[in-house]
Nucleic acid binder design. Sequence first.
RNA 1: UGGGGCGUCGUCAAGCGGUAAGACACUAGCCUUUGACGCUAGCAUUCGUAGGUUCGAAUCCUGCCGCCCCAGCCA
Length: 573
Amino acid sequence: MSSENDKINELNSDNENSSKTETKDFIRTIIDQHNKSGRFNGVVHTRFPPEPNGYLHIGHAKAICISFGIAEEYGGVTNLRFDDTNPTKEETKYANAIMQDIKWLGFDWGDRLFHASDYFDQLYDWAVLLINKGVAFVDDLSAEEMREYRGTLTEAGKESPYRNRTIEENLNLFEKMKKGEFPDGAKTLRAKIDMASGNMNMRDPVMYRIMRATHHRTGDKWYIYPTYDWAHGQSDSIEKITHSLCDLSFEDHRPLYDWFLDQLEVHHPQQAEFARLNINYTITSKRKLRQLVEQDIVDGWDDPRMPTLSGLRRRGFTPKSVRTFVEKLGIAKKRDSVADIALLEHGLRDELNATSSRRMAVLKPLKVVITNYPENQIEEFEAVNNPEDESAGVRKVYFSREIYIEAGDFVEVAPNRKYFRLALGKEVRLKHTYYITCDEAVKDDSGNIVELRCTYDPESKGGSTPDGRKVRGTLHWVSTHDAVDAEVRLYSHLFTKESPDADNDFLEHVNPQSLEILSGCKLEPSLLNLKAGENCQFLRHGYFCIDSKNSSEDKPVFNRSVTLKDSWTVKKK
RNA sequence: UGGGGCGUCGUCAAGCGGUAAGACACUAGCCUUUGACGCUAGCAUUCGUAGGUUCGAAUCCUGCCGCCCCAGCCA
């Protein structure tokens, strides 16, 4: 009886706990288990290991947030280590850009900046150790021969004819490889594992290749370079990493890393693999992004349409919005998952709604003359900077007889009673100021509307009238006398197809309208004071920032980071 | 006839034998000096599928089916 009660109590308390406890992903669950068992004495030490051969993109942001974020959460730290084992592809300029991007995201590796190349000597010594153990050998097979000997996915491979050289011979040959006595590609050092393994990575993988290339850090010291597979696990081990978090493509390599570490009898991190981040309407393949840049389809790696961190930054995305996005997506092992770009955009809007000042900007101007408003009169109005944040204060806006409104806010005949923007005979409110009614649309010879003639109601000053009549439509405006001219760039998805990555001809799906450049936009003058890197809401349009590359004092250029949600155009359809 | 993974709402994703969280998206309505924001409501009788075990299964067992990754001296 009593044991039954205990069980029920246990169940109840479990339920209470589970309803309060946050759900954990499989990586945090593994760490919890380690902490419970004491495997790493409660230490969580991760690393982020990029290859300095390109720019970081949103997919890397996920890996960064996971490795840095989880370590931080468990009171641990994260190393930044450049995996620079292939001198033909790596450059210092990429390393610098990568560091800048990680810092921008808000993560810090302290004084723990490392390079796989820091360990080249140790790696060499360990290779000698494996030769001495009889589990590594120098092979003379060419690349093509090796491929033939490797077998296929369903057939076992054949052992290399050089596999049974004596330890002395291997030692001698390996040293000569190091001294540069053989031409590039003539020999390799291979691990002696199992040519019949179902796991291709275990079929005597290459540990060293001969490569006469100047390394961006070690210069011309080496003629041989370790492969990633040989360097990676040991680098983690040397740095006493506890949890090596990486993407699913290294799942198959884990047995190999474990094998090396076991042979060497050194510190053994736990590797865990998660699914990479894919996002719809974009691509996250370094190779394909490079193509966009090299074929001038975009304006460089930091083009605001690019999913690179530098592109997102220039577009006006905040580090927080990127981190929130990654957190909300969660971590799992579903390889083909594709995140909705709308979630990233939602996070940005959510953040900026709370923090950005509002300003009025007319993107496609239409001149309005308020015929009953005194000429040469300028009236000052106070405008709230951010209705979501009183501390943001107020600013002054100046109203006059001639203003600009958005051309799209006027049609001659209202399409239905749900339409409450401006039309002939209709009344709308001008934000912060007066009601106006449209009397006449002036057209040019070809019938284009070039000017509106309206009358205002002096009683409506401030945006409401004594009679309390309802005016549903509120338009933003800018006075002609103090409007500032600017260029505004509107962006939309770089691709028209949800999963352009699936296609090899992904370039065919590039959205020809992903960039719309508007010139002659009319802005509220206070916008000239917007600081670089600061976001601002253009009322009824979206969030904008100054373009860091093309903007100048005399010719301001703004980027649209994200639109405001718009239920009207949805309804219209 | 190889090895490794994955299949829960349109999307991402919880769930770990006790009767399907949450977020985004979407829909309807309210509010509104941004058709924004906010608020309210709706949105998986069902967890790839077929059996089995069990009082009870998304969760355990078995068999199918589907999708993805691996044959660089790239990382």
